[in-house]
Design a protein around this nucleic acid. Sequence first.
DNA 1: TTGGCTAAGTGATTTAGTCAGTTTGTGAGT
DNA 2: ACTCACAAACTGACTAAATCACTTAGCCAA
Lengths: 221, 221
Amino acid sequence: MPPSLSDRLTESILGIIRDGGLRPGDAIPSARELAKRFAITTPTVREALRKLEATGAVEFRHGSGTYVGPTINNVVLANPHRPPITRDSVLQLIGARLVIEPAVAAQSAVARRPENLERLEAAVTNALVPPGGPAFALNFHVELAAASGNPLLHEVLASLLKVRVREQQQIRALYDNRERDHQEHQAIVEAVRAQDAVQAERLTREHLDNIRQAVESAPEF
Amino acid sequence: MPPSLSDRLTESILGIIRDGGLRPGDAIPSARELAKRFAITTPTVREALRKLEATGAVEFRHGSGTYVGPTINNVVLANPHRPPITRDSVLQLIGARLVIEPAVAAQSAVARRPENLERLEAAVTNALVPPGGPAFALNFHVELAAASGNPLLHEVLASLLKVRVREQQQIRALYDNRERDHQEHQAIVEAVRAQDAVQAERLTREHLDNIRQAVESAPEF
DNA sequence: TTGGCTAAGTGATTTAGTCAGTTTGTGAGT
DNA sequence: ACTCACAAACTGACTAAATCACTTAGCCAA
């Protein structure tokens, strides 16, 4: 079963991006240009580009052009066509986070650099601004993973938590004690600042366990 | 910025799959049929289908039809357009696994069921068959994550290790002491069988650390 | 300098078809 | 009655040539 033309084309386009040293945000040749260059037609080029769009490798901007996407160098990504949220899936997610995040927190406590502490502080304080603002930009738990110094851990947590965007309101509604959330985050930051891995791990586990209990005891949803 | 027609179309197609209760392997309506049903043209339908193909939600079979893919219900995915492997990326991957997998092993030791032990045994013994065989089907580390009982953890590890397919030979070449690999796997299985979480965690950490050292001390690549 | 207009470039989609595989049912031959 | 070859009929893969919608940059006038 030979790879289809548009399959080979996606690889060629990735080659153009990589060989050209293009970075996220840079423009790639227009669909017409690519069609001419590869001696094929635009619908076929568009099929290849749509595949790349699905994984965040490229982005379309109507009337402007096609650009290199932010996740082109990702190893893992959140499924853009994810299934609808259910109560079980939320608990499953928290269960997975309960396994992964304490270990990540421990690693971050050891490896954190000054700039990570800054961003963690910012994420903690931004969480208190009213919803709808730029609070989504800096998620505390994602920043905590970033502090580990391993981009792959960052990717994994970011992918896992991307799902949460759709249920964030729901969880907030259940675990609405935002002051408590803030205090727990603050305590984790302090442990990371002190490079106390054991404490960071314990606090993170307790924090997630609190969230889990809040969701579990929620009657609705 | 309203979502494009083909964007809405992907959602509609997913709706057909979900509302129709279609499962992986089932056929979905042909491109021409979908075009007629939504009163649009086939190139547009194909663009939408290509997006779904990129994330494994559907699969094309030339001349036969389009079918529901295996990863349609996944939350996280391995990037099908992943960047080329480098020495750094390999070490990064092992670093991430070193953080995540010991915690997963501990969880698996607690939650494992009899069928998980069976599959783990199978994965351990299959690892000794010559390469190129069905050894790829059952990866020990993926099965270990499956034993946690949390499908999301299984997904995360499977996504992380999917990358390894391309570098498996390379790592095998470096860490070629397959007998030692087998023994370490066997020891982890025993800890999981005994539901000894602490031991499972420790052995997994040591096992991955051995692999990391082997890769680190490799001069080439 | 500012504001609006215009023209070129780009993505989005259509229309109408051809080519290339797969599946299935039919019918001839045994 | 059974088998096998073969021919529709269906499917995906791709082409060709347009048109529409949107963005951007540049120009010109106020």
